[in-house]
């Protein structure tokens, strides 16, 4: 167990050493959200209507930027190879790394979300729904994203390819998350959408670690 704790501590430590990499996707998220009032319309009603979608799309795009970091450094300095060879359970190792990555790159998004909700004139009910979808949905982004990151980590030009692979896969999450917030705006119950997102999260949590482990092995070749 302590081995996995060690990986976790090491990952957190490294993440907080590279503060720029931590902050840049967040700034990107903030800027993308800022573009919408400027590009579409600053009228509060319009913003409220498009708000949930804008925040989720921006969160997905910025997560694609943050995602690359997940295995890249470990791949380059060879520690990933050591994990594969060490005899530790690779699915467990990848789960630990995904959790650490989620904590450092998505918890800040959750903390930033009140500001974004204010920018886009979301009501309090909508914000609560948005926060709940983010809490359930962003781990899903991390888990699914990690599979594609594991596959592309050995490639020099992984960036755009990662987006090509992941954006279609994230579409159902986007649909259910924005619709939950829309329902909240109409004072309707939004538990069904949350339950579906939670179901997808559980499915991903059960299957993704093995897929991540396999894709890391493929990358190590």
């Amino acid at each position: 167990m302590s081995l996995y704790q060690g990986i976790f501590k090491r990952d957190m430590h490294i993440a907080f050493k590279q503060k720029a990499e931590l902050v840049q996707p967040l700034m990107f998220l903030l800027m993308v959200v800022t573009l919408f009032p400027l590009g579409v319309s600053p009228s509060p009603d319009t913003l409220q209507r498009i708000g949930p979608g804008v925040i989720w799309i921006a969160a997905i795009l910025s997560s694609l930027m943050a995602m690359e970091r997940l295995f890249r450094d470990d791949f380059q300095d060879g520690s990933l190879e050591q994990y594969v060879l060490s005899g530790m359970a690779l699915p467990a190792v990848s789960t630990v790394k995904v959790v650490a990555h989620w904590l450092v790159s998505f918890v800040p998004v959750l903390l930033l979300s009140p500001l974004l909700a204010m920018f886009l004139n979301l009501t309090f009910d909508m914000y609560v729904a948005l926060l709940l979808t983010l809490i359930l949905g962003t781990p899903l982004l991390s888990l699914i994203g990690a599979i594609a990151v594991g596959l592309t980590v050995g490639l020099q030009k992984g960036g755009v390819l990662l987006a090509l692979l992941l954006i279609p896969v994230f579409i159902p999450l986007l649909i259910f998350a924005t619709s939950a917030v829309d329902s909240a705006a109409l004072q309707l119950p939004y538990y069904p959408q949350l339950a579906i997102i939670a179901a997808m999260l559980l499915l991903a949590a059960a299957l993704a670690p093995f897929a991540i482990a396999y894709s890391l092995k493929v990358s190590q070749n």
Partner: peptide, 10 residues
């Protein structure tokens, strides 16, 4: 192999 993983995810 990599494309296979992606096909399965899809």
């Amino acid at each position: 192999k990599a494309a296979g993983v992606m096909a399965l995810v899809g």
